[in-house]
Each structure stands twice: as C-alpha cells, then as structure tokens.
Amino acid sequence: MPQGKPAGTRCVQLDDNNLCRLFGDPRRPRVCLAFNFDADLCGSSRSEALQRIEELEQLT
C-alpha cells in the first residue's frame, strides 16, 4: 500500500488465512517488521486483537 494503510482497512497483503504474504520478504514494510506479538495487544482471540488494533489505529 504505497500511500500507507488507512485505519480500519484490511492490509492487501493478508491472505485468506490472515497471514502476511510478505513475511520474510525484504519488501515487507518496516512498520510490520517492528510489529511483534504482545499478549496485552493481541488478547485471547482474533476479534479481541482486531478491536485493540483498531483502537490504536484510531489514535495514530
């Protein structure tokens, strides 16, 4: 996404299993490389993680 990913927009690089198509690829954006699993952020379910990430996106 050359102009960046707007908050609330699904990344175009996610496949049907929500896995990054650029994982391990040098073209993967720096922001994604810096994004590590964090139990406080990810919570205990996919829906909880998406809710928390959406809240963070709205703040930035």
Results as ranks from 00 to 15, higher is better:
1 M>P: 03
2 P>R: 12
2 P>T: 14
3 Q>H: 12
3 Q>V: 07
3 Q>P: 01
3 Q>Y: 10
3 Q>K: 08
4 G>R: 06
5 K>H: 04
6 P>V: 04
6 P>M: 06
6 P>W: 04
6 P>C: 06
6 P>T: 05
7 A>T: 08
9 T>W: 02
9 T>P: 00
9 T>A: 08
9 T>K: 13
10 R>C: 02
10 R>D: 07
10 R>W: 06
11 C>G: 04
11 C>V: 09
12 V>T: 08
12 V>D: 10
13 Q>M: 13
14 L>P: 03
14 L>V: 07
14 L>Y: 07
15 D>R: 12
16 D>N: 13
16 D>G: 08
17 N>V: 03
19 L>D: 05
19 L>G: 10
19 L>M: 12
19 L>H: 09
20 C>R: 02
21 R>W: 01
21 R>N: 08
22 L>S: 10
22 L>V: 05
22 L>R: 06
22 L>C: 03
22 L>Q: 09
24 G>Q: 12
25 D>E: 09
26 P>H: 06
27 R>T: 10
27 R>L: 11
27 R>K: 14
27 R>W: 00
27 R>Y: 01
27 R>E: 14
28 R>L: 15
30 R>P: 02
30 R>I: 05
31 V>I: 14
31 V>T: 11
31 V>H: 09
32 C>T: 02
33 L>N: 04
34 A>I: 01
34 A>P: 02
34 A>S: 14
34 A>R: 13
34 A>E: 15
34 A>W: 02
34 A>F: 05
35 F>M: 10
35 F>C: 13
35 F>P: 00
35 F>D: 11
36 N>P: 01
37 F>I: 06
37 F>G: 05
38 D>E: 14
38 D>N: 15
38 D>M: 02
38 D>S: 13
39 A>L: 12
39 A>N: 03
41 L>D: 00
42 C>L: 09
42 C>E: 06
43 G>M: 01
43 G>A: 05
44 S>R: 13
44 S>H: 13
44 S>E: 13
44 S>T: 15
45 S>C: 05
45 S>H: 07
46 R>L: 15
47 S>R: 15
49 A>D: 01
49 A>I: 00
50 L>M: 15
51 Q>T: 11
53 I>T: 08
53 I>S: 00
53 I>F: 01
53 I>M: 06
53 I>L: 14
54 E>W: 11
54 E>C: 01
54 E>F: 11
54 E>I: 02
54 E>Q: 10
55 E>D: 13
56 L>D: 04
56 L>G: 01
57 E>Q: 15
57 E>L: 09
57 E>C: 13
57 E>M: 12
57 E>S: 08
58 Q>D: 07
58 Q>F: 04
58 Q>I: 09
59 L>T: 12
59 L>H: 06
60 T>P: 00
60 T>D: 07
60 T>G: 14
